[in-house]
Design a protein around this nucleic acid. Structure first.
Lengths: 169, 169
DNA sequence: ATACATGCAAACGTTTTGCACTTAG
DNA sequence: CTAAGTGCAAAACGTTTGCATGTAT
């Protein structure tokens, strides 16, 4: 699987960012299997919605998907219901941005990752922090807390926006 | 201030958890000063809302405050506007829960802290993780990201709940 | 006295549902 | 053919605003 050395350092650009197509195909397969298992029907709308999700590298909201696809016979409600279905299938995860609005991302069968969220351009950069996970584990053990999940978001200004800022002066 | 040794280890029960009253008084003072500076008026409603916030140990939403105070001449809209004002005064911070609903907490003039959230009893244990902050700083510098804020929540089962679970068997 | 604060009701934006029509299997 | 899927419009939901009334200064 993710065969490259799993050392203890930070991994800024995780290995799974490569080979995205194989990954996308795997999701599409699970998507189909879920339909069969649940007696659901594949439609062009659902396929387009999943495609959109698989071809984006950031967390999208319902409207973004709707706007991108509305010319192609996909309604807002369908996007809503497809996203709901995809969540039930555990293929998409719902998160919320800093204003509390819902955003979605393809659920990754891959190492847990944290987020660098740019407050200017909204871009979300994903990062793996194995060191931090280790520290968490140790502390949790010490205080008798059993960790099941964690959310770690760092907000600030990304490289590009900072460059623009200084250029604008 | 927080005079105790600021070493690099985890601090499970930070020093500022003691002396909560002094802390509350400080906030009330800033609250009053903000009113004077801005030419605002102190009202019983606003005082009650601030008191409620100061006497709770978890992140509350508008409705919780409203329900607690509606018998005492405090309307929903007033809670809303008071919270808005408190945010402008930098005394209250607005966050969002996992469903995207707004929640509020008194803004702490104290070291940044992270949260251990028990999914069973809902209790939130606060933790300082200076080691983790260090790692963040280093990574952010490496990728050219300027960190302004971070949110770090670890979910799981707390010591007490786990004890209860095994006892129940 | 006079701004500022309050609370009702109504506007708002987003998410969700009811229902008649369409379509994949 | 028929149960599932779609899309419109409308309900539901939380948040926010307009305006007449109340009140701290």
């Amino acid at each position: 699987m993710h065969s490259s050395a799993q050392h203890d350092e930070l991994v800024y650009f995780p290995s799974w960012t490569a080979g995205r197509n194989g990954y996308a195909d795997r999701i599409r397969q699970l998507f189909q299997e879920y339909h069969q298992k649940q007696g659901l029907r594949m439609t062009k709308q659902r396929n387009r919605i999943l495609d959109y999700l698989l071809n984006t590298d950031h967390h999208v909201d319902m409207n973004e998907i709707y706007n991108a696809l509305k010319g192609h016979g996909v309604g807002k409600v369908t996007v809503f219901r497809a996203l709901k279905m995809l969540q039930e299938a555990k293929l998409v995860e719902r998160v919320h941005d800093s204003d509390g609005r819902a955003r979605y991302e393809v659920q990754h069968e891959r190492p847990h990752h944290d987020h660098l969220v740019c407050v200017q351009c909204g871009r979300i950069q994903e990062i793996q922090w194995p060191q931090i996970e280790k520290i968490q584990d140790k502390t949790c053990k010490d205080v008798g807390f059993e960790r099941t999940f964690h959310r770690h978001e760092v907000s600030g200004d990304c490289k590009d926006c900072r460059k623009k800022n200084t250029a604008a002066k």
